[in-house]
């Protein structure tokens, strides 16, 4: 085949992917970047080039910092806690016990439920006075708490829902990874006199490292991406206490119809996620090559 027809062949093969990626990934990204550099246009004042003015506005707005702070706490708590719980559940579900498959299914249920449906369930749990949690603490004589209605507890209530939702999902990955560890490794360790804890620390955890990094990447992306439950539970309130970055962007774009600022915020998130993903994949390459 001549080089020319060969390159035509290559283009033909790449064409479908190129079209799809351009339409749904490249064009939106570039359009977002582009529109983040202009002011909001109206009938009387057309949009004009604003350099980095939109970004400056965002950095000057205390709500932006509040939202970023919220998201950092949200990520900082949900990621390690849900990974730790997932690992514990997986270790337990991997051991010999009765009704193993029932337990595994039960753990996985939160992942199968749509987030909106799950949030409605939790809304009932959190409802002051008649909710499940208030009923339970009422038995012990505590006063009713408006879990979602006060800034001190609202974010933590959201965090709890997320951990509940995510742990079961991550557990499945850990469970799969645990089942690839040959049982002879444990027997070899037992013969050497290894305690269960040492075996876990020196053998199981290192072998789960690739899974942990994979789960970590997912958890990090989810900490920015998962906001469905905010729409049902708090709508970002009270007093921005539960407003997370993606919800804030949605609000800017569709409640305040301020597309340029929403675009600017989106670009910032993309940059931040890009940096984190790069670091994590470097780590994966370094730590997981023994497989």
């Amino acid at each position: 085949m001549k080089p020319r027809s060969q390159s035509l062949y290559a283009w033909m093969l790449l064409f479908p992917a190129l079209v799809l990626l351009s339409t749904f990934a490249f064009y939106p990204s570039i359009a977002t970047l582009w529109s983040s550099l202009f002011t909001r246009g109206s009938a009387r004042r057309p949009a004009k080039f604003n350099e980095l003015g939109n970004y400056a506005d965002l950095f000057a707005d205390p709500v932006t910092w509040k939202v970023i702070g919220n998201n950092l706490i949200y990520a900082g708590v949900t990621i390690p806690v849900s990974i730790a719980i997932a690992l514990l559940m997986a270790l337990w579900a991997d051991s010999r016990m009765p009704a193993k498959s029932f337990v595994r299914t039960a753990y996985f249920t939160p992942t199968m439920l749509p987030m909106i449906a799950a949030a409605n369930l939790w809304l009932f749990f959190y409802t002051p006075g008649i909710g499940l949690f208030d009923r339970i603490i009422g038995v012990f004589g505590f006063d009713s708490v408006n879990w979602l209605g006060q800034p001190e507890t609202a974010l933590w209530s959201i965090i709890l829902v997320t951990i509940w939702k995510e742990s079961g999902f991550f557990m499945i990955f850990y469970l799969a990874a645990l089942q690839t560890i040959p049982p002879e490794l444990k027997e070899a360790a037992i013969i050497e006199g290894t305690s269960r804890w040492t075996y876990l620390r020196r053998v199981v955890l290192p072998l789960l490292m690739p899974t942990t990094l994979f789960v970590l990447v997912n958890a990090l992306i989810n900490s920015v991406r998962l906001i469905d439950h905010l729409f049902i539970l708090t709508k970002g309130g009270p007093d921005n206490a539960t407003k997370l970055i993606l919800y804030y962007i949605w609000e800017l774009a569709f409640s305040y119809l301020d597309a340029p600022h929403a675009a600017a915020m989106t670009v910032l998130v993309l940059i931040a996620l890009g940096i984190v993903a790069t670091i994590q994949f470097r780590l994966i390459d370094k730590r997981a090559h023994y497989r």
Partner: peptide, 20 residues
């Protein structure tokens, strides 16, 4: 007695080496 108290070592068919 537990395996480690028996004073023996074992070579497995799959070798059971720790891959990491």
């Amino acid at each position: 007695l537990a395996p480690s108290e028996r004073g023996l070592s074992m070579v497995f068919q799959s070798y059971a080496l720790f891959p990491h």
